[in-house]
């Protein structure tokens, strides 16, 4: 034991904002791995279809959207077959909503562990967001199949997808971290989030193309990070939508600011969060 690094933890009231504890969170990466694994493995137990549900959910939604908005309402889809058009948006959108929902309620639903064992609480919302990514990759394989079916060859533009994927997760985490501690105090948050996400879906070009939005409003409209993600996905996959531009950079800036402030708020409230249960 060296004198320079005392082998003890000091426990005292923490004041102010403190650090993000990234190093400590990293030390608990095994726990992160196990929580993701529990989330995935535990979810589909004792179900006849098991993990098929991961693929089934967005697929069925896509079919319904195609019938209602594509066939009945005849919404334009920038010339792309409507099923492909909506599915390419549904994937990041589902990832976003699931991650946001889960991370916002992560503290409440994991109180059993949180009130009994210490670990950096940040692990919990991160693990739920990552579990969403696994679902995403499963569904993505279907998407590739659909592209080939409709005669779209995946090209080099696919390489930009991780950036948009990161933007979707970062946005979900940013909002989720802000809401997670609030959700401990007010159980209404979980309901509110679900409802607001439904509203948000119509503010995001999931069932219609962004090109339908009047030109004058387009700039403001594209400040919605998820609008960026969805349009970016379409650009990379089927060639419509919008290429990354300056607004994308600005949106990243906003999201990162939200993410860091959210993480700090989370760190601040995690110290005494169990007292509020």
């Amino acid at each position: 034991m060296s004198e320079a690094q005392p082998n003890y933890v000091e426990i005292k009231p923490r004041k102010g904002w403190g650090d993000l504890g990234i190093k400590e969170t990293w030390e608990f990466r095994e726990l992160l791995y196990f929580l993701i694994w529990r989330e995935i493995k535990g979810r589909y137990r004792q179900m006849a279809l098991g993990p098929t549900w991961i693929i089934l959910k967005p697929f069925v939604t896509m079919v319904v959207l195609s019938l209602v908005f594509g066939k009945l309402a005849k919404l334009p889809s920038d010339g792309v077959p409507y099923p492909l058009f909506s599915y390419s948006a549904l994937l990041p959108w589902t990832l976003f909503t699931v991650s946001l929902n889960k991370s916002a309620t992560s503290l409440v639903s994991n109180m059993g562990i949180i009130s009994k064992v210490y670990f950096p609480r940040m692990v919990v919302p991160i693990s739920t967001a990552c579990a969403g990514l696994v679902d995403f990759f499963m569904s993505f394989l279907i998407l590739i199949g659909m592209m080939l079916y409709f005669g779209y060859m995946p090209g080099l533009k696919l390489l930009i997808l991780p950036m948009y994927l990161a933007l979707a997760v970062a946005t979900a985490m940013a909002v989720g971290l802000w809401l997670a501690t609030l959700a401990v105090r007010f159980r209404d948050v979980a309901y509110a989030v679900e409802h607001l996400l439904q509203v948000a879906m119509y503010l995001t070009p999931v069932v219609y193309p962004a090109s339908m939005v009047p030109e004058a409003w387009r700039g403001l409209y594209m400040l919605n990070p998820m609008a960026q993600v969805v349009e970016g996905f379409r650009w990379a996959l089927v060639g419509t939508g919008q290429a990354p531009n300056l607004i994308t950079v600005a949106v990243w800036g906003i999201v990162l600011a939200l993410l860091f402030s959210g993480a700090h708020l989370f760190r601040r409230t995690e110290r005494t969060v169990v007292d509020l249960m």
């Binding site: 003890y8 426990i11 005292k12 009231p13 949180i114 009130s115 064992v117 210490y118």
Partner: peptide
């Protein structure tokens, strides 16, 4: 066990 912060005072746990 660091599950919650104290309001005052301090403690050290070695190991």
């Amino acid at each position: 066990s660091r599950i919650t912060d104290p309001t005052e005072g301090m403690a050290r746990v070695y190991g």
